[in-house]
C-alpha cells in the first residue's frame, strides 16, 4: 500500500530538514505547479469572452493574469535540473493530473453558472488550498534569501488571498445546487488534488523515477 498524503508530507518535511530543494526537486515542483497553473490558464483564458458585468468575471480575470505572472516568475527562479528523467517523470505526473482532475472537461464551450462551472471553481480552490510547500520547509529557513523558495512563497501568499473570494463564490453562487451537493463537489475535488499531490511528494528527495515506481508498486 502506498503511503498516505500525510505520511508523504511528513517524509518530505524530514527531507527538507537536511537542506532546501536541490535542482531535481526544484524542477519537479516548478513543472508540477506550472502544469496546475497551465490548467487554470487554459480554462480562464476562455472566460475573457464572458461579459464584463458577469459576476465572477472580475475575480477570474484577475486570477488569470496572476497565474501567468507567477508561472513565469517561478520559471525564472527555478534552478533547472540537467537530468532528462526528471522531465519524463514530470510529464507523467502532469498527465495524471489532467486525467484525475478531469480538467479537459472544463475546456470546451462557454461557461454558464451551473454544475460544471461550480466544479471548476471547486477544483481551482483545491489547487490553492492543498498544494502548499511552505509548511514543509523548516521555519528557521530564510525563505526570502532563496529565489526559488521566495517564488513559492509568493505563489502561496497569492493563493491565500484568492481563496477568500473563492470561498465567497463557492458559498453564494447560485448554480442550482443544494448545500450538500456543493459540499460534496468541493470535497471530491480536494480529495482528487490531494491524491495527485501525494504522487508529486513521493518523488521529492528520490532519485529520478524512483518515487513513481514505488507509487505504482
Amino acid at each position: 500500500m502506498s503511503p498516505s498524503f500525510e505520511e508523504q508530507q511528513r517524509r518530505v518535511k524530514r527531507h527538507f530538514r537536511n537542506g532546501t530543494p536541490d535542482a531535481n526537486d526544484q524542477t519537479r515542483i516548478a513543472l508540477y505547479l506550472q502544469a496546475v497553473k497551465g490548467i487554470n490558464v487554459a480554462v480562464l483564458a476562455k472566460l475573457e469572452w464572458q461579459p464584463v458585468d458577469w459576476l465572477p468575471y472580475r475575480f477570474l480575470h484577475g486570477q488569470y493574469y496572476r497565474e501567468l505572472e507567477l508561472t513565469t516568475l517561478l520559471g525564472r527562479a527555478t534552478q533547472w535540473s540537467s537530468q532528462s528523467l526528471i522531465y519524463m517523470e514530470a510529464a507523467t505526473l502532469s498527465m495524471d493530473l489532467w486525467s484525475r482532475t478531469e480538467a479537459a472537461r472544463y475546456l470546451p464551450g462557454f461557461f454558464e453558472v451551473d454544475e460544471r462551472f461550480y466544479s471548476y471553481l471547486a477544483l481551482s480552490h483545491a489547487f490553492m488550498s492543498v498544494l502548499r510547500f511552505m509548511p514543509l520547509v523548516p521555519p528557521a529557513v530564510d525563505v526570502e534569501a532563496d529565489p526559488f523558495l521566495s517564488a513559492l512563497k509568493a505563489i502561496e501568499d497569492e493563493n491565500g488571498r484568492q481563496i477568500q473570494t473563492q470561498i465567497r463564490m463557492l458559498k453564494d453562487l447560485d448554480a442550482g445546487l443544494s448545500r450538500q451537493e456543493r459540499e460534496r463537489l468541493v470535497e471530491t475535488q480536494r480529495e482528487r488534488v490531494e491524491a495527485c499531490f501525494a504522487q508529486l511528494l513521493a518523488t521529492l528527495g528520490q532519485p529520478p523515477g524512483k518515487g513513481l515506481e514505488e507509487e505504482s508498486d
Partner: peptide, 14 residues
C-alpha cells in the same frame, strides 16, 4: 512562519 504554516488558510478564512 509557524503560524502561517500550521494553519490551513482556507480553514481560518472559513
Amino acid at each position: 512562519r509557524v503560524g502561517a504554516s500550521t494553519n490551513e488558510l482556507y480553514g481560518i478564512q472559513n
